[in-house]
Design a protein around this nucleic acid. Structure first.
Lengths: 236, 236
DNA sequence: ATGTGATTTGTACTATCGTACAAAAGATCA
DNA sequence: TGATCTTTTGTACGATAGTACAAATCACAT
């Protein structure tokens, strides 16, 4: 038997709910939350504005559902890759593997949708910049566990660096990651066309390489703040 | 004579124009462009909504004026610091001075207003995330020269790294910089209160230290792509 | 085929948006 | 003081926002 799926399950092609989610994700990620209207989303999805209300009740509810859809799979994938990375023996290699485990799912698919990882990460970047309340709540209670796991793992492979500095550097990593997804065309522009900021593969390699080096930098070590390098004539 | 200033020049206290600019800058930087209404801005500035129209014609015009106000002084300060940094003899020290010249004006005042630099930088971060058209135009034609100057200066102190990779890494620097200003509370949260993300001084030190190390990382070198490190069991 | 629940459509309501504009108020100088 | 220019105020208008809701339509088990 062919087993035609029930509408309660996943319908095949004309799934309005999914189309709305995808359209909203795309529009929110590129224009921000407030710049996009429910009518914009409906039009992009080929749906009726009222249909959005039916499926998600409110605009906030729609954003919430986008997060729900992605958070689980993405964190799962990261956890798997982190577990694998922690088994790497060589400390240098392990650090790189850990960073890669953090970066790769953010750039590529982390769920059913192809390329959904990058789009969702970009969405998170934009929501965080806008200070979106819905996003802030979800992020703190969903991603902080994973973030701590990564920070701890990195700390284990760099025991001589204070945890506080690991936090700072992983924060920088996330910022660099976000920004790479938000304005990839800037890389192409500044490199005069020699680099393609939209190429996920090279973005990942560049980011991993740079970040590993950043993590390995000597600690500032606030317990011994003696070493203060002079900057030539910084006062005008 | 006391020389009461003409209204054409800078009036002393009840300068509505300045108050509106400051309020708009603050609100845009924390909530994004579209989430803030002209009425919100007027109220925060203690002004009448119509007054905003009078001084800046449109909401876009207001944003434009904020950029105009800051871009000049900030780039000037950066150029001064960059020129000083390029005079540093030791290559390692010079690199650090260059990075510092890029970072410091973004975190502190770059204009007349105290703390204006950080607020303006945060504004730029948010506008770039939202893909704001007005901001995009100004940024490309105002900051790209400075960005190229910094990239070239860094390249000179790291001649063995391809320029393309310098571009990537300075792009990461800007992303980290932006993100540090957008969500400083995340640093405090993840470090369990041990670090203060809002402390500009430590943010600068951490960022400079990490970034210098990132710039000094060996090049990926696309001409010799042989060295490909294996990552343990990255497929599930 | 028909009834039933799920979905889609169309429309309407209220709130708020950006902006325009006339009138009031304030400042400047002969 | 009175004339003139700048600034502020108050109000209004059209557009669009989010959301509610009844009617129409669809999918599917019986």
């Amino acid at each position: 038997m062919v087993r035609k799926p029930t509408s309660k399950e996943t319908a095949r092609k004309p799934n309005m709910r999914e189309a709305i989610l995808a359209a909203a994700e795309e529009l929110f990620a590129t224009n921000g939350f407030n710049a996009v209207s429910v009518r914009d989303i409906a039009q992009a999805a080929g749906a009726n504005p009222g249909s959005v209300t039916y499926h998600f009740k409110t605009k906030d509810g729609l954003l919430l559902e986008i997060y729900r859809r992605h958070c689980g799979p993405m964190n799962l994938r990261r956890s798997e890759l982190l577990a694998a990375a922690k088994r790497v023996r060589d400390l240098q290699d392990r650090l790189e593997a850990i960073v890669r485990a953090y970066v790769v799912p953010a750039f590529t698919s982390g769920s059913d949708l192809a390329g959904g990882g990058a789009r969702f990460t970009r969405l998170r970047a934009v929501m965080s910049a806008e200070g979106n309340e819905v996003a802030r709540r979800i992020i703190a209670q969903t991603f902080d566990d994973t973030s701590h796991a990564f920070i701890d793992a990195i700390h284990e492979s760099l025991p001589h660096i204070p945890r506080t500095e690991i936090v700072w550097r992983s924060h920088f990593l996330l910022g660099a990651l976000y920004y790479s997804l938000v304005t990839p065309e800037r890389v192409a522009r500044l490199s005069r066309g020699e680099a393609d900021g939209s190429d996920a593969a090279s973005a990942i390699e560049q980011l991993v390489q740079a970040t590993v080096a950043a993590f390995q930098a000597p600690a500032l070590d606030q317990t011994a703040p003696a070493r203060r390098r002079a900057v030539a004539s910084s006062k005008t």
